[in-house]
C-alpha cells in the first residue's frame, strides 16, 4: 500500500474530542472538578496535533540518499572481497603448513614414500603438458579433414544455441511480468 499522509480519521477524531470536551466543560459539576489536565488544554492539544503535516525533506534528498546506498554497496563489496581473499590466504597457508608437516612426518617414517609421492606429483604436473600437446596435434590435423571441420562447426553451433536459449529463459520471467501488468 503506498504511503498516505494523515487522513480524515485523525482530524475527525480531533473534532469529536473537541466536541466532547466542549460539552463536558459546559456541565458545571464536571468543569468544577480539579483535573490535572484541563479539558481546554486537551482540546487545544488535539487541535494542534490535527493541524500538523509531514515535513518535506530538503531538495535532492533522494539523490543523496541513493549516492549513500551506492557507496555502502561498494564498501560492502570491497569488504566481501577482502574477507574472501583473507580466507583464501589462510586456507593456502594452512594447506602449505599441513603438507610440510605431513612430508616431514613421512620422510622420518619412510623416505621411500616421499620419493614415490614426488614421482606421482611430477607425473600429475606432466598431464597439462600432454593435453596441450594433444590439442596442438588436433588443431594441426583439422584443416586437412573436412569431416573434422564439420564436427567442430557443429559443436560451436550447439554451444552458441545453448547459450542463446539459456539467455532467453533467464529474461523470460521479467518479460512475462511486464506483459501481465500491461
Amino acid at each position: 500500500m503506498p504511503y498516505i499522509g494523515p487522513s480524515e480519521t485523525v482530524q475527525e477524531s480531533a473534532r469529536r474530542t473537541r466536541r466532547l470536551y466542549g460539552r463536558s466543560t459546559s456541565v458545571r459539576p464536571v468543569s468544577a472538578e480539579s483535573l490535572g489536565v484541563t479539558a481546554e488544554s486537551a482540546a487545544e492539544l488535539d487541535t494542534l496535533l490535527a493541524s500538523v503535516t509531514l515535513v518535506d525533506p530538503p531538495p535532492s534528498f533522494a539523490i543523496r540518499a541513493m549516492a549513500r546506498v551506492e557507496q555502502s554497496r561498494r564498501r560492502m563489496r570491497a569488504l566481501r572481497i577482502i574477507r574472501i581473499g583473507l580466507a583464501l590466504v589462510v586456507l593456502a597457508a594452512g594447506l602449505a603448513a599441513g603438507t610440510g608437516m605431513l612430508v616431514t612426518a613421512l620422510r622420518s617414517a619412510d623416505p621411500q614414500i616421499v620419493n614415490g609421492l614426488a614421482r606421482i606429483l611430477s607425473q600429475l604436473a606432466a598431464i597439462p603438458g600432454a593435453v596441450l600437446l594433444a590439442i596442438r596435434v588436433i588443431v594441426r590435423t583439422l584443416p586437412g579433414h573436412p569431416t573434422a571441420l564439420l564436427a567442430a562447426w557443429a559443436a560451436v553451433a550447439i554451444l552458441v544455441g545453448g547459450l542463446w536459449i539459456k539467455a532467453l529463459a533467464a529474461a523470460q520471467p521479467d518479460g512475462l511480468r511486464i506483459r501481465q501488468r500491461a
Binding site: P2, Y3, G5, L54, V55, D56, P57, F61, A62, A65, M66, V69
Partner: peptide
C-alpha cells in the same frame, strides 16, 4: 530509487 522517492517524506519527517 523509486521506493526512496516514494518514502522520503515520511521517513525524513
Amino acid at each position: 530509487a523509486n521506493l526512496v522517492e516514494a518514502y522520503q517524506r515520511p521517513v525524513y519527517s
